[in-house]
Lab assay of single mutants.
Amino acid sequence: MAEQVALSRTQVCGILREELFQGDAFHQSDTHIFIIMGASGDLAKKKIYPTIWWLFRDGLLPENTFIVGYARSRLTVADIRKQSEPFFKATPEEKLKLEDFFARNSYVAGQYDDAASYQRLNSHMNALHLGSQANRLFYLALPPTVYEAVTKNIHESCMSQIGWNRIIVEKPFGRDLQSSDRLSNHISSLFREDQIYRIDHYLGKEMVQNLMVLRFANRIFGPIWNRDNIACVILTFKEPFGTEGRGGYFDEFGIIRDVMQNHLLQMLCLVAMEKPASTNSDDVRDEKVKVLKCISEVQANNVVLGQYVGNPDGEGEATKGYLDDPTVPRGSTTATFAAVVLYVENERWDGVPFILRCGKALNERKAEVRLQFHDVAGDIFHQQCKRNELVIRVQPNEAVYTKMMTKKPGMFFNPEESELDLTYGNRYKNVKLPDAYERLILDVFCGSQMHFVRSDELREAWRIFTPLLHQIELEKPKPIPYIYGSRGPTEADELMKRVGFQYEGTYKWVNP
């Protein structure tokens, strides 16, 4: 592979701008107003304001973009700056750019259920340069409990009458099928589907988006991507930290609602779906819905739930269990780990287990898709061969690698495990991989909904998990304890083995 010439960040961002501006969906010269509902909250200060700053800094926003914060707290732009700027990672050389960014910011205080507050917000936006005809993007960085009041008031008082209007809704989209349907029906009564952007930030990850290209742009994968060759698929999300004093919020939802029903299920769809007619948003989402419709409700015998306990040999936070978090209700049975087996009941995947695993306070930070292939028929190497695996590593250190057998150097035919490896950090030294939120917010500006969740996708996802969630809430089974920093409950490994996964433990990928 030829040595790549190092590029400056300015040059890299210039390439990104060229890609972005050559499309006809990006209205570079139009006025846009980006409204952050819930501007005083954690999500706004840690993710949304920093993301908008990065896009502005790199010249990736339309030229005439204004940012308006809205929340109940009586704040000023200076207050917003004070709480969000520490997350910007701005350099001293960017000081003038930073001043320009905050000059485009404003803030309006108001209630979430008060019509007069929204009329005041609308008047404020109209007073901005060309504000009355601007395109408006409303980001709901809010708890779902206020979605209905907020969307109703936005629709009645704050819509642009000339430009387009788009609304970005953060997960969780309800707690179960019934609450999700209620919320979807409410929002759909106010906005068209092409105006609604239900954001799952995992769909903005580079390697998640790469799944489609790997599958449908490489001839070698087509013939082997089926039940005849693939023994099982494992989708993993692991965090090495616990709730760390923020367990009160987590306890309301648990690990299945927080990660599995959305992030992991979306990745499953991209692995299992048929080739779409095109890369058009609805063509892709149509195929994802077909996959979900082929999955039956989760069966309790295919589920393992766990909850982390303190590690007596650990240090600091590792010595504390979930129930030691003062914000967690006493005696909570909320799971911090889950392993679930699903089956896609169609011709391509009949009988292939899709194993979804996620948890907190585990032994490493990792998100990946792992396809394990069947054993080689007619073994001539005296059971020395391990199964081939194709691994798409989402985070950290984005990579695609194939675990395969090669001859060990020497005189004899002794096979050993090795890999074919594409590590993004080595291959793409001159490429700026956008943060997931950067990519998705740019998608909203461009009107691309491919990486957002459609209402029928959402409904099918909740259909699969709601009976299990209701059973857990009714019966309150005690989750299996696992030690902070471990791989999780051993019962999860036993479940995976029972459905056909072979864990060798003899080879570990190392970032080159």
Rank of each mutant, 00 (worst) to 15 (best):
Y202P: 01
F253M: 05
L16R: 09
E170S: 02
G69H: 05
L214C: 07
D42H: 01
L121D: 03
E252N: 12
C158Y: 04
C13S: 15
Q11K: 15
F241N: 07
A25Y: 15
F21W: 12
I167P: 04
I199C: 05
I187Q: 04
A25M: 15
E93H: 14
F138I: 10
A90T: 14
V150P: 05
Q178A: 14
S73H: 05
V208S: 05
L211G: 00
Y49F: 07
N126G: 15
H124T: 12
G23Q: 15
E94T: 06
E85A: 13
D79P: 01
G174I: 03
G174N: 00
N210K: 03
I234N: 12
Q119R: 15
L177P: 00
R219C: 08
I154W: 02
I196Y: 01
Y249R: 01
R182N: 14
H186G: 08
D58V: 09
R136W: 06
S188Q: 08
W225R: 02
I67F: 12
S123L: 14
I187D: 00
L140D: 04
L7K: 15
K152N: 14
H129Y: 14
R74H: 15
T91P: 09
A231F: 04
E193C: 05
Y139H: 03
A217F: 04
R166N: 05
G247V: 07
I67M: 07
F66C: 08
R192D: 12
K82V: 14
F26H: 14
T145Q: 06
W164L: 10
P92F: 11
A39W: 03
Q209N: 09
K46L: 03
A127P: 10
H32Q: 09
T243C: 13
Q178L: 13
Q209D: 05
N153Q: 13
D176E: 06
G41C: 02
V213Y: 14
E239G: 04
I224W: 04
L140G: 06
E170G: 04
N226K: 06
I167S: 05
I167R: 02
N229L: 04
D30K: 15
T236W: 00
L43W: 02
Y70F: 10
V208W: 03
T10H: 09
I234R: 12
E94I: 00
I187R: 02
L130N: 13
M159A: 15
M207Q: 07
L203E: 00
L211E: 01
N153I: 09
I33L: 10
L61D: 00
S188T: 07
F102M: 08
A71Y: 00
L214P: 02
K47T: 02
I187G: 00
R9E: 15
S40V: 02
S84C: 13
E99G: 10
G110D: 06
W53I: 03
N210P: 01
I154A: 10
T31I: 09
H155A: 12
E156L: 12
E170T: 05
F173Y: 09
S160M: 10
L203N: 05
N165W: 05
D100A: 12
R120A: 13
T51P: 00
P240F: 09
F34Q: 05
W225Q: 03
E239M: 04
R227M: 08
D30A: 09
D200V: 04
R120S: 13
S132F: 11
E18N: 14
D42L: 03
A231P: 00
N226I: 05
N210G: 08
C158E: 05
M207A: 03
R227I: 01
F34K: 01
G242I: 03
I224Y: 05
A134F: 09
L20Y: 15
T76Y: 07
I230H: 04
T91D: 11
R246F: 05
L137P: 04
E244L: 13
F101R: 01
G163E: 06
L61Q: 03
W54D: 07
I162R: 14
T65K: 04
S157Y: 12
I48K: 04
D200K: 03
H124N: 14
R17E: 15
D24T: 08
V146H: 04
R72T: 00
L60Q: 09
L177Y: 08
R215K: 07
C232Q: 13
D24K: 11
L214R: 05
F101E: 04
L203C: 03
E239K: 02
M207C: 05
F66H: 14
N153P: 04
H186F: 11
I154E: 03
N64E: 10
L183E: 01
N126D: 14
E85F: 07
A141H: 04
G174V: 00
L211N: 00
K82C: 10
A103I: 10
I33Q: 07
K45I: 07
N218V: 04
P240A: 07
D181C: 11
S40E: 05
N210V: 02
Y112L: 01
G163K: 15
F21Q: 09
P143A: 07
T31Y: 11
I168Q: 00
L214N: 00
S157K: 15
L60N: 07
R81Y: 07
E19Q: 11
D79G: 09
Q161W: 12
G245Y: 09
H201Y: 01
R72S: 00
P172C: 04
T91Q: 14
P86W: 06
L60H: 07
S132C: 14
L121A: 07
Y202G: 03
Y147W: 03
L177M: 13
H124Q: 12
D194H: 09
R192Y: 13
G247N: 05
S84M: 10
N126H: 15
F250Y: 14
I224G: 07
G131W: 07
M125L: 11
I33C: 10
R192V: 12
L121H: 03
N165Y: 06
L214T: 06
S132V: 11
D24R: 12
K89D: 13
L43V: 06
H186C: 11
V169Q: 03
A109T: 15
S29M: 08
G59M: 07
H129V: 13
I52D: 01
G38D: 01
G110R: 01
I220C: 12
Y249V: 02
D42I: 00
I35C: 08
R166E: 01
I187F: 08
F88C: 14
R215Y: 03
R120W: 11
I36K: 04
R175E: 12
S157V: 13
D176Y: 01
M37F: 12
K205V: 05
T76A: 10
G23V: 14
C232D: 00
I154V: 13
H201V: 03
H124F: 14
G110V: 02
N218K: 01
I80A: 06
F34E: 03
E206H: 06
I15M: 14
A134D: 12
F191V: 06
D79A: 09
P144F: 02
A134N: 14
T65M: 10
Q133L: 11
S160C: 13
Q119H: 12
I230L: 10
Q161L: 15
F191W: 09
F241H: 09
S180M: 01
F250A: 05
P143G: 03
Y197S: 01
D114I: 11
S73Y: 02
D194P: 08
D24S: 12
P223E: 08
G14W: 13
D181W: 05
K45W: 05
W53F: 06
G41E: 00
R215S: 01
K47N: 04
G247I: 06
D58A: 09
E85D: 07
F34C: 09
G14A: 15
A78N: 14
S180F: 05
Q22I: 15
S180D: 01
A78W: 11
L16F: 15
Q133P: 09
Y70Q: 07
S84R: 03
A6N: 15
Q178V: 13
L140Y: 09
A103M: 15
L137T: 10
M125Q: 08
S106M: 09
P172F: 03
F237N: 01
G41L: 01
Y139L: 06
N165P: 03
G163L: 05
L61A: 01
R9C: 09
A90E: 05
R219A: 11
